[in-house]
Computed example of a mutant assay.
Amino acid sequence: MLTDGSTGERFCQHCGNVVVERIEDPRAEQRSFADSSSDKSRTGAPNSLAIHDRGLATTIGSEGRDAAGKSLSASMKQDMRRLRIWDSRSQTQEKAGRSLRAAFMELDKLKDKLTLSDSVIERAAQIYRKAAGKGLVRGRSVLDVIGAATYAACRDTGTPRTLNDFADELNVKRKSISKSYRMLVNELDLRMPVIDAVSCISKIASKIGLDEKTKRYALEMLKDASEREETAGKGPMGLAAAALYASCLKYNVKVSQREISIASGVTEVTIRNRYRAFIEPDEFGKNMQEIKPQAVAAPTA
């Protein structure tokens, strides 16, 4: 698909079929005021649920000039400075506003630490606002609820993040986040999709530094097991870790269960149990038997 900026059309480069005739310009509107400001955009930042006031609050500029570009007097500058102070205080005067501001500051930190997308952050802010509107945040830790809301947003958007990731970055217990997550699912009637183990392969493999051949074989193992409907009821991260471990044994990659356990966040016992299920012919098919001889040589590497 190609986009013509002059005509505003989006069309196929092979057949010439025009999909969209007029595309909206996502850039900010420009102004032509005669001032010395380098920012020519007429509008501000877009609205966002991840801001305590949704980005709708206005700000009083710090430039000491009026609309015509003339310099303000000393008394007027003092009045404007005082108005700016009261304007900033009035935005977080209510307790609910201060709570949202503190929660979304932690959400912005999580975005950078866990490399989350804007869609995940918007979904997390929406879930947290619903919980705050129903009074579910009252009496609970803000870190626990915002961590649970972000984890629910990751589950909803298919982003592979675990509870241990949120517990480590927020410096709280995993049990408290999981408790808040169950509360949000039950009280807000959320329908969380099941995480696919295939999406967890790339996350674990990138931390260990595995090659593409090893990842591809692990993906084939998981897809074959998923088609047989034999992965139901098992943790996706444990299945992905076991598939990668079996693939490493097949291609003689020097990776231990300990390294995969640290990268995936599951225990070595879980990896061994899922690995035994992979090499059992009666459970995952006869095509998995080819990795069994190497598994006997070093089952607990």
Rank of each mutant, 00 (worst) to 15 (best):
V137P: 00
E220V: 10
L110N: 03
T270A: 13
T214E: 01
G5C: 06
V185R: 09
G233K: 03
R101C: 06
Y251G: 00
S206L: 04
T214N: 02
I279D: 05
D156T: 15
K40R: 13
S226I: 11
M288I: 03
Q93M: 13
S73N: 07
R258L: 05
G285S: 06
S99C: 05
R54A: 05
Q126P: 00
S6N: 13
F104D: 05
T43E: 13
E63V: 11
K179I: 09
A240I: 03
E230D: 06
A67V: 12
R123L: 11
Y181P: 07
T231N: 10
K286P: 01
K130Y: 08
V253D: 08
C15Q: 04
R140H: 12
A103G: 04
D282F: 10
D79I: 07
T159K: 04
R84E: 08
R81E: 13
G147P: 06
R84A: 10
L49G: 02
I271K: 02
K111R: 15
K213M: 11
E169R: 15
S48C: 06
A125P: 07
W86D: 06
V142S: 13
V269K: 15
I60A: 05
M183Y: 04
L170Q: 06
S199V: 10
T231K: 01
S176C: 03
A102T: 08
K179A: 14
V269T: 14
T159S: 11
